[in-house]
Computed example of a mutant assay.
Amino acid sequence: MPKLSMSTPASRNGSMRAADTDRIQTAQLLTDAAASGKLGVNEYEDRLTRAYAAQTYEELDRLSADLPGAVTRGRSGPCRPAPSSLLLAILSGFERRGRWNVPKRLTTFALWGGGVVDMRYADFTAHDVEIRSYSIMGGQTILVPPEVNVDLHGKGVMGSFDHTVDGEGSPGAPCVRISGFSLWGSVGVKRKKRKGS
Rank of each mutant, 00 (worst) to 15 (best):
N42H: 06
R96L: 06
K3I: 13
F181D: 03
K193I: 00
M6A: 15
T72H: 12
Y57K: 10
K192G: 04
K155N: 08
V102P: 03
E58K: 11
G113S: 09
N42G: 07
S186F: 12
V165Y: 01
N42K: 13
L4E: 09
S135C: 06
A65G: 03
G69M: 02
M137D: 02
V176S: 04
Y121P: 01
T26D: 04
L30R: 05
D162G: 12
P83M: 00
D66Y: 07
S182T: 07
M119H: 02
T72M: 07
T108F: 07
P81V: 12
R96E: 13
A110R: 12
T56S: 15
I131L: 08
A173V: 08
R97V: 14
G77W: 02
M1N: 05
G138R: 04
F161V: 08
D118C: 03
H153E: 12
D166N: 03
Y44P: 13
T31E: 01
G185V: 10
A18W: 11
C175Q: 12
N149F: 03
T141P: 01
R105S: 12
G154V: 15
M119E: 08
E45S: 09
M1H: 09
V148E: 06
I142P: 09
A51F: 06
P9E: 11
S11D: 11
L111Q: 06
I24F: 11
R194L: 15
R17F: 11
A27Y: 08
N149S: 05
V71H: 15
V157A: 10
R97C: 13
S92M: 05
Y44S: 13
T107I: 02
R99F: 02
E45M: 15
D151A: 14
G172S: 09
S64H: 10
K38V: 14
G77C: 10
F181N: 05
A19Y: 07
K190R: 13
R105F: 10
A10W: 07
G115P: 00
S170N: 07
S64C: 02
R120I: 14
A33Y: 08
K155T: 11
D166G: 02
V41K: 10
R47E: 14
G74T: 10
K155P: 01
W100G: 03
T108P: 04
K38L: 15
L4Y: 11
G167M: 01
E58P: 01
V71D: 15
N13K: 08
R132E: 12
G69R: 02
